[in-house]
């Protein structure tokens, strides 16, 4: 058994006897050191979706799933297509990528993990750290090199996130895919 806060998007838990893939998991501190996890779930047997919330320390039964290394290939509306080393293609719907969709972009070379349930891809997990290029941000704030002052930056696929104020257009940055947050600027 794992606690609700240990589950990540793409993982599967057995809830009331049925397997549910976690499409999105949001952790929040509620009060006096207690916390809750809001999850968007999809039932792998009948495809129904639901939103739910757990206490962070609620126990859920995880399902061990088959995984395979893949890379992103292309988007064929409404499906995202990934490919393994043997050139097998795997299609996955947008909703099943919700946790990582922000970081999917054409030309990305990250080695991802496709997650299978009953031979069907149910999610794709990105590496914990990925590198992306900033295509637009406001000009740097002179003098601030602390990294504490943040500003908005846009990536190639249009996703936006907060980055250190000294980052510039064209800079590559490291992102933690578990939190979706900027980690650091990659030195050229």
């Amino acid at each position: 058994m794992k606690t609700a806060q240990e589950f990540r998007a793409g993982q599967v838990a057995i809830i009331n006897g049925a397997p549910w893939v976690i499409q999105k998991a949001e952790f929040n501190k509620s009060g006096r050191n207690a916390a809750v996890v809001k999850m968007k779930l999809k039932n792998l047997l009948n495809g129904s979706a639901t939103e739910t919330v757990f206490k962070a320390d609620d126990k859920l039964e995880p399902v061990i799933l088959e995984r395979k290394e893949v890379t992103y290939s292309y988007f064929a509306d409404p499906l995202y297509v990934f490919m393994d080393a043997d050139f097998n293609q795997y299609e996955i719907e947008k909703d099943d990528l919700e946790g990582v969709l922000t970081f999917i972009e054409d030309g990305m070379t990250d080695v991802c993990e496709a997650v299978f349930y009953n031979d069907k891809v149910i999610s794709v997990e990105l590496p914990t750290t990925i590198v992306r290029e900033i295509v637009y941000t406001e000009p740097s704030v002179r003098g601030d090199t602390s990294g504490k002052v943040m500003k908005t930056a846009r990536l190639k696929n249009g996703a936006e996130l907060q980055v250190s104020a000294f980052c510039e257009i064209g800079d590559s940055i490291e992102i933690d895919t578990r939190t979706g947050e900027y980690k650091s600027r990659v030195k050229a």
């Binding site: 949001e26 929040n28 509620s30 009060g31 809001k38 639901t50 939103e51 739910t52 919330v53």
Partner: peptide
């Protein structure tokens, strides 16, 4: 739950938990 003015609270209020 506890009282909070944070944005996420509205998105969790009233949700079921299995």
């Amino acid at each position: 739950e506890y009282l909070s003015a944070e944005d996420w609270v509205g998105g969790c209020h009233g949700l079921p938990s299995f």
